[in-house]
Design a protein around this nucleic acid. Structure first.
Length: 459
RNA sequence: UCCUCUGUAGCUCAGUCGGUAGAGCAGUUGACUGUUAAUCAAUUGGUCGCAGGUUCGAGUCCUGCCGGGGGAGCCA
């Protein structure tokens, strides 16, 4: 049985087995208190080891921080106040020792920067154990949200031959020997590479998801995504996970409803199913995050157009580092001001100028905006980017040409607009950013087990 | 990539005007106590990120490089 289940039991002297790693040990005159954690929950199981225990002097020193232990004994009501039950051991097996002079994890609080350098040990801390459990629970909630609504989970490829979105630098995939790349007078001869053409890691599964949405109506992807941008912030990774629903017979308005309902569903799931871990975040990491999330699940997201947002920002009279002008993209400071100062809750901004958005977004009749939507949340800014897609063949083609893209690369994407085209919409949600939002963790590198960033590829 | 701060004991940090290295925690030893980041005492522990330079003398000043944090851009 795991510690989480054992802690929920009544201590009646029943025989049990506990397996876990030593978190702390406190010595007393007659007994030693050993706190074991097995990752099933944030709480530890206290093992009370009396000095009269056989071979006490041999076993006790080996029960240092980090040691792995199997304890057979009886579960009894605790005499102390910090826990309801504790274990009186009959038999203790130290599976693996952890030399206390060398073991890097101490009882005291460590900086997240230091823990990043020991990513092989950091899941043994309260914070990273909780993050791992929350991340897992949120993944499960994502699948259950879509599954309950009849969405089909589509696996879009990780290796792609098209840089369709054109947005962002891509990681190249090749089997060429780097010291001997085949070259013709026109440049690299990709026809001799593994796929016979240029290949990269995906920056988005959206375009492929559209294919399946136009057959199965409602689909979603959930998988790793890669961006080779040289961005060095607490909100960016080179490898991150993205959730991308795509819905046919769906306009921008229904798209927004879905995004809002989806986020609230995840928040509710975590608040009810990860109560202990969330309370830990709410007291130790981000004060009051539980109350904030509860409030969000109970109120509706604000919805404004880009044009209204620009007017609000101008009206605020605040001096921004970047001036607010219609046609310019909203800067971080603008987004944060809108969601944190003006509305103090999640805000969905729609109908952006078409010149600052991607080619596939549906153009409005005003000729200058597109049906884009960004969901902005306090503390982080953009957490979702989405749109209704351009479903008119002619308008999509002219947009592709206008932006100087090669239409040959989009032949199948265009054909979807020739055969049974229909209004459809979708969005992309940065999974790690949602975890940051839920937990209050400041740095995105601390909500993914093994972060990949510019200049960093440890573990 | 840009701006900015920063790098000193295992960890978190202090180190004044340039004068030869310090605290708390951890580790070790001992005391005390059904303890909760236990407490108290003693004690071990240093290539001051790296490479140059200035100086009688550099943790401290200068230059370059490398790492980390925060902010910005790009975005999710």
């Amino acid at each position: 049985m795991r510690i989480k289940e054992l802690l929920a039991l009544e201590g009646k002297g029943q025989h049990i087995t506990v397996e876990g790693w030593v978190r702390t040990k406190r010595d007393s005159r007659d007994v030693s208190f050993v706190a074991l954690n097995d990752g099933s929950c944030i709480d530890n199981m206290q093992v009370v080891l009396p000095k009269s225990f056989p071979l006490f002097d041999d076993i006790e020193p080996r029960l240092s921080n980090g040691a792995s232990v199997t304890v057979r004994g009886r579960l009894v009501k605790s005499q102390g106040t910090g826990q309801s039950v504790e274990v009186l051991p009959d038999e203790i097996t130290v599976q693996g020792e952890a030399n206390p002079a060398e073991y890097p994890l101490q009882k005291k609080r460590h900086s997240f920067e230091f823990l990043r350098e020991i990513a092989h040990l950091r899941p043994r801390t309260n914070t990273f154990g909780a993050v791992a459990r929350i991340r897992s629970a949120m993944s499960y909630a994502i699948h259950s949200y879509f599954n309950e609504r009849g969405f089909v989970y589509v696996h879009t490829p990780v290796i792609t031959g098209s840089d369709c979105e054109g947005a962002g630098e891509m990681f190249r995939v090749t089997t060429f020997p780097l010291d001997k790349i085949p070259v013709t007078k026109d440049g690299v001869d990709f026809s001799r590479d593994f796929f016979g053409k240029e290949a990269s890691l995906t920056v988005s599964g959206q375009l492929e998801a559209e294919i399946y949405a136009l057959a199965l109506k409602n689909v979603y992807t959930f998988g790793p995504t890669f961006r080779a941008e040289n961005s060095n912030t607490s909100r960016h990774l080179a490898e991150f996970w993205m959730v991308e629903p795509e819905m046919a017979f769906c306009d921008i308005s229904l798209n927004m409803d879905t995004a809002e309902e989806f986020i609230k569903y995840i928040l509710k799931y975590v608040l009810t199913n990860c109560r202990l871990d969330m309370e830990f975040f709410s007291t130790m990491i981000e004060k009051g995050v539980v109350e904030n999330l509860e409030h969000i699940t109970e109120s509706s997201f604000e919805r404004i157009t880009y044009t209204e947002a620009v007017n609000e920002l101008k009206k605020s009279g605040k001096n921004f580092d970047y001036p607010v002008e219609w046609g310019m993209d909203l800067q971080s400071e603008h987004e944060k001001f809108i969601t944190q100062e003006i509305f103090r809750k999640p805000v969905i901004v729609t109908d952006y100028p078409r010149d600052i958005k991607a080619f596939y977004m549906k153009q409005n009749d005003d000729g200058r905006t597109v049906r884009a939507m960004d969901v902005l949340v306090p503390r982080l800014g953009e957490i979702i980017g989405g749109s209704e897609r351009e479903n008119d063949h002619g308008r999509l083609l002219s947009r592709i040409r206008e932006m100087g893209l090669d239409e040959k690369n989009y032949w199948w994407y265009l054909e979807l607009r020739k055969y049974g085209s229909v209004p459809h919409s979708g969005f992309g949600l940065g999974f790690e950013r949602l975890i940051q939002f839920v937990t209050g963790m400041q740095n995105i590198r601390d909500v993914i087990p093994f972060p990949r960033c510019v200049g960093t590829l440890d573990f």
